[in-house]
Design a protein around this nucleic acid. Structure first.
Lengths: 138, 138
DNA sequence: CGAAAACTTGACGTTAACGTCAACGTCAAC
DNA sequence: GTTGACGTTGACGTTAACGTCAAGTTTTCG
């Protein structure tokens, strides 16, 4: 009778469980479905989400944090999902992957530059504070 | 008579020169001004942009590439511009800088993770292609 | 069984970051 | 002296990524 609390190999989640887990609204989840980033199973009318959907949501959120649009995240998701077979498709996929990788490397460079520049700001700022402190010592 | 072509220490630019140089529209530049990210000098009605404005535009564009909003870029710009002196302000600035740095480091982690995952996809993809090629060898 | 809680599908609203268009000023060149 | 290139300020349009109701159905729980 309480099996589901003891053993649940492929537990599915309702939309609000997922929303809580990812700290987003149900509206957002449905919106992602509209845009083709998720397509959960249905039990009657209701949506049921598997771990695959959780993976996708994780990818989406990581994508957002690094400035990707939903479309870009969708492209990434489709790279993770094989769904293929055919040689041409594999080669196209390889091209897409290497293109994305290049872009991500470029983004790393931008990040590094901004970080070193912020380091500079920090140093100049601390020097200014040191000067003030020395004056106070006198 | 041709001094300006030989020696121009603080050349200013018109809006369309700037637009060409940064590959954006004049509308975009005026929009950034509206939002407080630029404030060029004026000669009569017309805007004149200095190298300081070019630096700001560079920061804005880099910010966009790493997924920052204009407001965030503005915050960064204000960190670059000292404009102050007072100790409290310096300490607040230091806090802001270190907060930004943390966020950027987190973003680097996200980028790295996405990169290694794309590496995985790439490898699996190449393995699949190798198998196909071996079959063709027979 | 009956009310509260959760789920559903619309439809319209909102914010950021510009695009687009109109209507007007100005200045050098033909 | 007018034409054409460039500049100006509005005002409204657009897209992405949701938020916010509304109005109805279904599940759950005492």
């Amino acid at each position: 009778m309480f099996w589901h609390t003891i053993f649940m190999p492929h537990k599915t989640h309702t939309i609000s469980e997922l929303a809580r887990a990812f700290d987003i609204t149900t509206r957002t989840i449905r919106f992602y479905e509209e845009k083709g980033l998720l397509n959960p199973q249905r039990v009657g009318q209701q949506r049921r989400y598997t771990d695959a959907d959780r993976v996708r949501l994780t990818l989406i959120q990581r994508g957002k944090r690094i400035g990707m649009s939903l479309q870009e995240s969708q492209a990434i998701i489709e790279m993770y999902d094989p769904a293929q077979g055919n040689v041409e498709q594999l080669e196209r996929l390889l091209d897409n992957v290497s293109e994305r990788k290049q872009q991500l490397h470029a983004q790393m460079q931008d990040l590094k530059q901004m970080l070193t520049e912020l380091d500079d700001v920090e140093k100049r700022c601390q020097q200014a504070l040191n000067i003030v402190n020395k004056k106070e010592d006198n």
